[in-house]
């Protein structure tokens, strides 16, 4: 099985994630879509690593995972606080910066 198929899958996942970020209003879902995009990128990195026969891509994937874990902690905390204060998790409600 050629590694290109992994790349196609990665692109597909990334697109689904991006569309989810743009379309969905629920912050949790948007958050999950962002995770999906990160993991799509991880998949691509690992696939490239395999294609080139070195470990650079895999190392980069580990970095992404660490960053994603930290991001989940902060992001979920923000979402929980937002929900508590506004009783809604809609990203469109949090538009206070608008004049």
């Amino acid at each position: 099985m050629s590694p290109e198929n992994y790349l196609y899958l990665s692109a597909l996942l990334f697109t689904i994630g991006a569309c989810g970020v743009l379309i969905r209003r629920n912050a949790i879902v948007v958050f999950m879509c962002i995770e999906l995009m990160l993991n799509a990128a991880n998949l691509a990195l690992v696939a490239f690593s395999r294609m080139h026969g070195n470990l650079d891509g895999q190392i980069a994937a580990f970095f992404v995972m660490v960053v994603a874990a930290a991001e989940v902690v902060v992001g979920l905390a923000i979402i929980v606080m937002l929900y508590r204060s506004r009783h809604s998790a809609s990203v469109d409600d949090a538009s206070l910066m608008k004049l």
């Binding site: 970020v21 743009l22 209003r25 990203v91 469109d92 949090a94 538009s95 206070l96 910066m97 608008k98």
Partner: peptide, 11 residues
């Protein structure tokens, strides 16, 4: 343009 909607910034 600065409408405060996170999604439009994302776009």
């Amino acid at each position: 343009v600065q409408n405060g909607f996170a999604r439009s910034y994302a776009v």
